[in-house]
Design a protein around this nucleic acid. Structure first.
Lengths: 204, 204
DNA sequence: ACCTGAACACCGTTCAAGT
DNA sequence: ACCTGAACACCGTTCAAGT
C-alpha cells in the first residue's frame, strides 16, 4: 500500500530558503534543512538528487517573486532598466543566495522568463543576431557582477574603508576614489553603471 | 633553540594553486595542499590563519602574472581595454580560481595595483569624483561578471545548448538567441561587451 | 512506498604531546 | 620553535532495516 509522501518540493524549497536567509549560506546543509522540516537528512533524497539540486531549488524560490513581464511604457532603455532593477531588488531580499546565483541561474524558470522578456525588448529596439546575443550577455554579466559586488564588496563597507586607508603615496587614485565611493549609495551606483552600459548599447 | 621553518608562504601558495589547477576547487583542502608539500594539514596553520587565508593566497598567486602597468599608447578606451583583457587572460589560465575571485580580490596586491592603473587611465580621460568611482565599479562588475559567466556558463557550452532546446513556442527569442550565441567565440563576446560599456562611458 | 539509523569517507580546526 | 597524531564536531551520501 503506497504510503503518502510527507513533503513536497515547495516545502523543501521554502524551508531551505528560510534556513539560508536566517543562518547564511553555511547553514544550508541537508541536515539543517531537514531539521527545519522536522525530518531527517536522508528523507530529502526522496525529493532532490543531491545538494546541487537543493541549491537550484533555493535559487528558484528566492527569485520566484520577480515580475518577469516586459514593461510596455517608456523607451527601450528604460524598459531594460526596469527589468534589470526588478531582479536586483528581489535578490537584495535574499543576500545569502548571491553566491549561488552564477552557478544555478541557468536552471531557474524565473530567470528564463525574465531573459525572454529582456530579449523581447532588445528585439523591439532593433537588435538581432550576434549583436543581440552579445548585448544580452553583457547585460547579464553586468547585472550578476554588480549584484555580487554590492553584497561581497559594498561601496560603503569594510573593503572600501580598507582601500581608503591605503598608502596614498603608492595608491593615490585608489585612495581618492575610495573616499568618493563612500558617498555613493548602492542604488545610485547600480543604476549609474547600468546607464553607462545602456548608453553604449546602440542600435544603428 | 629555534628550529628552522620547513615551508614559506610562497611554497604554500604555489602548492595550493597546483592542487586547484589539477583537481578543481573541491580539491583545495588543508589536507590536500599539505600532501602536495609532503607535510601534514596542521602544519599549514603555522603559515595561514585558516582556510579563508589559504584561498586569498591562491587568488593572489593565480593573479601574480598580470602586468599591472598602465599602457601608454592608444586612446584611453583602448588603454582601459588592454588592462581589462590582461586580467581576463591570466584568470583564464586558472579557471578553477574563478569562484574565489569575487570573495578575495579585495585583498590581492596585484588587483590593487591593477585598479590603481585603471584609475590612472580614467583620470587622464577626464573622469573624477563620483563619476570616476561609478565608472570603476561598473568596469569591475562587468569584468568579474563576464569572466565568471564565461567559465560557469560558456556561450558554446551546455547551458546555451540547453537553452536552444527550449520550447520555441514559449521562449521564441531565447531559442533564437541561443542559436546565434553558439556562433560567437568567447574573446569576441568579452570584447564586444567591454566595447559597449566603454562606448557608454562618456567624459564630457 | 516511504522514512530512519547507523555507517563511510570526508571536511576544518583544536590541542596536547613529541623532538 | 616547529611539527605531529589523535580527536572533535561537522559535512554529503549510501544502504540495509524498519513500518
Amino acid at each position: 500500500m503506497p504510503r503518502p509522501r510527507s513533503l513536497n518540493p515547495i516545502q523543501i524549497a521554502s524551508a531551505a530558503l528560510a534556513v539560508i536567509d536566517e543562518g547564511g549560506l553555511s547553514a544550508l546543509t541537508m541536515r539543517g534543512v531537514a531539521k527545519e522540516l522536522n525530518a531527517t537528512a536522508m528523507c530529502l533524497y526522496r525529493y532532490v538528487a543531491d545538494r546541487d539540486e537543493l541549491e537550484a531549488l533555493v535559487v528558484e524560490q528566492a527569485l520566484a517573486g520577480v515580475d518577469t513581464t516586459a514593461p510596455v511604457e517608456g523607451d527601450w532603455r528604460d524598459r531594460v532598466a526596469v527589468l534589470v532593477r526588478r531582479m536586483r531588488v528581489v535578490i537584495g531580499c535574499h543576500p545569502a543566495v548571491v553566491p549561488l546565483l552564477p552557478v544555478h541561474r541557468h536552471r531557474s524558470p524565473t530567470v528564463l522568463r525574465w531573459t525572454e522578456s529582456l530579449l523581447a525588448v532588445l528585439t523591439e529596439a532593433g537588435l538581432d543576431g550576434t549583436r543581440r546575443a552579445v548585448a544580452l550577455r553583457a547585460l547579464l554579466a553586468y547585472t550578476v557582477g554588480a549584484i555580487q559586488q554590492e553584497h561581497l564588496a559594498p561601496l560603503s563597507g569594510g573593503g572600501t574603508t580598507a582601500m581608503a586607508a591605503l598608502s596614498p603615496a603608492e595608491f593615490p587614485h585608489l585612495a581618492a576614489t575610495a573616499a568618493d565611493a563612500g558617498r555613493v549609495d548602492p542604488d545610485a551606483e547600480f543604476d549609474g553603471g547600468l546607464e553607462i552600459l545602456l548608453r553604449g548599447l546602440t542600435t544603428d
